[in-house]
Design a binder for these strands. Structure first.
Lengths: 322, 322
DNA sequence: CCATTTATTCTCTAAATGAGTATAATTTGG
DNA sequence: CCAAATTATACTCATTTAGAGAATAAATGG
């Protein structure tokens, strides 16, 4: 799953007319001080990216080269996210097609020294409504809910109103529904559709009452970031990827705080420990933490062997033994 | 998740030199007569595909257009699979880069009449080792195991031998391990690496003792098909996508047989029923089947409402209530 | 009517999950 | 040095879910 790439098709006449510009773009994630952060460039409002060039051996190596050049950061774990190609989601129009192939990279924030243009930034700067670690953030009730209600009311008649309202309610957990932390992309797309994010209004006249929600990014980078967050929030649940973000040795609490930072939710401490233990994902290093107050915690390391042993979780289909 | 696309990047000088040819390629799946089949073109050894052109509104609409033109088949549900760009996996070398953006489409085999070049073909023709509905297929013990052992033995020394053997054992369930039906792509890649599939030997001199395993496809289409099968086998477990493959009304057994066809494994009938029922995925139509022997089965239909109600399964993180 | 076939419902046990409570090992303020 | 305070770790208990199979129901074909 971590290394897929290849060209295809048999000798078809090269259709130069349709050739496209291909960009590689990276969502590089680290967690430091209980804050999930993303690697940015420029005015801290762009993801590292660059064109896929003839010199690149593969998509992945092209991506690594660009990120390293632009941020000085070397990537470890990466996986492909999604390939975008909409014309209408970019401000300017061009004659030529642009394809963006996005990747998710997991890393630790330290790594390589020296002065560089790299800037880590909490992803909740861009998505303030996504952090529910201390309850639902006020921005939802104060800003988003009223605005979304207005957007629902744009519709004249009932079935259409209800459809909009239901979508909003599912995405944000209104009407007593549960908050679902995985719906990052749906929420962003809804806000985009309701024109509650700055980038949705770029083509139009500057409306001073907007924008309102979070820091925006250039082009559609915020959408790509949303895609990455959604993927990661989903993936930590069934694959041991959190450990890519951890130092070599860590305590249970540190691990828990990392998961909480990513998912934007608090987890139940004893049950979290039980979950990790029963899956045998970690082993004791023998050391304990010294620096803290309270009872010192044992240090653990990730059991890399699990990557070989059980490639994947379990079934979920009620298989028959026959 | 079903409709994502967009262009990116701010005004960077168009780097014509690096422009790439972009192909769209479809894994179109249907299940008929308990056989999972894939839509092919050409000599029934190619997936429908075509270049992404300026006239296409989006990647998805371009894909739909090509499939419709080449097969006369109209697509319903589609989702993006993966974007490939390896140079070394295609027979011929070219100066220009080729990007293949692949999609998975789910449909029903009937649909549109008239003469057409479309051909449905069981995916097990291409992956005979993947069908475990009547136990492990003989090809594994008879052909693959000995060949893989020889491949393991190519390595001179122990740690390297062990590493190869462990990979094979995990992928194919040797050494008393369980068969994991989701590892379709890993298995294919392993066979490719061990040169046990025809396409792995295309650059080299024709070795008569090979090829051996399944029907091959042009270029890297078989790899893309493997990617699609793997995705589908994984996805049916946590999202109600099987219903895209079912007729409007169906019995529990038909539904079960469809799941079995896709996963290549038999499921436990009462527990399968319980699973579907407790998730309230279906409702009775009121009719029953007439044509069969034995007790007539009730007919059910998919409750489309579930797509709105619960967008997604559940948590899997031990959340705290606070 | 009886054997056969398929459908549907139950039962029972073992695991996994959710939610707390209890106990252990430290540090820190007096 | 002792009593909070603080964090870590271990247990408990009820509830749900999953795995495996038995029992019952409703047809068909003689």
């Amino acid at each position: 799953m971590q290394d897929q790439t290849a060209a295809t098709r048999k000798g078809r006449p090269p259709a130069k007319a349709h050739d496209a510009h291909v960009d590689l773009i990276a969502v590089v994630v680290a967690v430091t001080d209980q804050e999930p952060s993303v690697l940015t460039v420029g005015q801290a409002n762009a993801l590292p990216s660059g064109p896929f060039e003839l010199g690149h051996r593969s998509l992945q190596s092209g991506l690594r080269a660009w990120v390293e050049q632009q941020t000085g950061h070397q990537l470890g774990y990466i996986e492909q996210l999604y390939t975008f190609a909409d014309r209408d989601r970019i401000g300017e129009q061009r004659q030529q097609r642009v394809i963006s192939i996005s990747y998710l990279a997991l890393t630790r924030a330290e790594h390589a020294a020296g002065p560089s243009k790299r800037a880590w930034r909490s992803w909740y700067d861009f998505f303030p409504w996504e952090d529910h670690r201390s309850g639902a953030p006020p921005v939802i009730a104060d800003t988003l809910l009223p605005r979304l209600l207005a957007w629902v009311d744009e519709r004249d008649h009932d079935p259409l109103k209800r459809e909009r309202w239901q979508r909003a309610a599912i995405a944000f957990g209104f009407d007593g529904r549960d908050w679902n932390e995985e719906l990052v992309l749906q929420r962003y797309e809804l806000l985009y559709e309701a024109a509650l994010v700055e980038e949705a209004t770029r083509g139009s006249e500057p409306n001073k009452s907007l924008p309102i929600s979070g820091i925006s990014m250039i082009a559609d980078h915020r959408r790509i970031l949303a895609t990455g967050i959604a993927r990661l929030r989903s993936k930590i649940k069934y694959r041991p990827v959190v450990f890519e973000l951890m130092p070599p040795a860590f305590t249970f609490l540190q691990l828990q705080r990392t998961v909480e930072a990513l998912s934007g939710r608090l987890v139940h401490k004893p049950n979290f420990r039980r979950l990790i233990e029963q899956q045998e994902l970690v082993e004791e290093t023998g050391e304990t933490t010294a620096d803290t107050v309270g009872r010192p915690a044992k240090l653990f390391r990730f059991r890399h062997a699990v990557l070989d042993e059980r490639v994947v979780a379990g079934t979920k289909l009620p298989l028959s033994r026959a």
